Simulated scan of single mutants.
Amino acid sequence: MKKRGIGYGCIIFPLGLGLGRTDTAAATLEMGEDGTVTILSGCADIGQGSTEVIALIAAEELGILPEDVRVFTADTAITPYAGVTSASRQTYVTGNAVKEAAAQIKESLRQGAAELLNVNPDDITFNKRIVYCEGKKTSLTIAEVARYCRSKGKQFISLGWFDATTSGIDPDTSQGEAFYGYTFATQAAEVEVDTDTGEVTVLRVVAAHDVGKAINPLAIEGQIEGGVVMGLGYTLMEEVILDHGKPLTPTLSEYLLPTAKDVPTITSLIVEEEDPTGPFGAKGVAEPPNVATAPAIINAIYNAVGIRITELPVTPEKLRRLLKEKGY
């Protein structure tokens, strides 16, 4: 017999190193005479897309296009320290450092453009490589303003620094600032349980994640989908088995991972509740997508057959034994 169920998993996930540990990042930015930008950052991109996020943040702040930005990362000989690529922190911490560096150059450009256009600096607008003043017909390109600024000795290189270190928790009162921010998520899973074999098939997952502000929506969607699949493997099949310290699942022949055939229909819902301290309101979204999947699936199993799972992974053998105990 096959029975279906639906379950939900809701999480609150802390961002950054937190707990009073030092959490900083720096980035340098230089604008050339052609209006292009070079960024140096110690942020290591290990597949999560932080290099593109850095470029997008700088481009947005300076009013240029992403293709105008070159990013060099994770070279200890030339790039400033940006901390570890973990704790879902790089978009927030390094992103803020890059935004700060870009803002310094932007202020220099603003002053130069105001001199060229003979207007108030506060009236200057930057958009898609064009610098202009509302109500004034004349406009300039970023390249024209950059050349002028360099010729007049105005600032064209900057260092951005951001410190996200929290105060930590007082061990006596349990009060304080544990983390600089939190992200929230809810996932719903629909499963089918074969009561004869104990096999669980995940049919569909809907994952709603608060990302603050989506700097790169397509990458976030991919991150959510990848996290769901990772969470599915953790829930149903990945298992390290030890015999007196000797691993019995040392290869992918025994330690099973999800394949394309195991991936359910995944609907990613991006929720934007902007964090006022993040770069353009952004928060991290790296780890949270794989956290809510397990509770959603085991709650769906409970909804289907009335069995509360307390040990992962939910292999067919384990579930069949529990089903037998319940009288299936």
Rank of each mutant, 00 (worst) to 15 (best):
L218G: 07
I220M: 07
I220N: 00
G222N: 10
I224N: 00
I224W: 00
G226H: 05
G226W: 01
G226D: 05
G226I: 06
M230D: 04
L232T: 01
G233P: 09
Y234C: 11
T235D: 05
T235K: 02
M237K: 01
V240H: 11
L242M: 15
D243I: 03
G245H: 07
K246F: 09
P247I: 04
T249H: 05
T249Y: 02
Y255T: 01
L256Q: 11
T259E: 11
A260C: 13
V263M: 11
V263A: 14
V263P: 00
T267C: 06
L269C: 08
I270C: 04
E273D: 13
D275V: 05
D275A: 10
D275K: 04
D275Y: 14
T277E: 14
G278Q: 06
G278I: 02
P279I: 08
F280P: 02
A282H: 03
A282S: 14
K283C: 09
G284I: 02
G284F: 01
V285Q: 04
V285S: 12
V285Y: 12
E287M: 09
E287S: 06
P288Y: 05
P288M: 07
P289H: 02
V291L: 15
V291W: 07
V291F: 05
A292E: 01
T293P: 04
A296P: 13
N299C: 12
Y302L: 14
N303G: 13
A304K: 03
V305S: 04
G306M: 08
G306C: 07
G306E: 13
I307D: 05
I307W: 02
I307R: 06
R308N: 11
R308F: 10
R308C: 10
E311T: 14
P316S: 06
P316H: 02
E317K: 15
L319V: 04
R320V: 08
R320K: 15
L322S: 11
L323C: 10
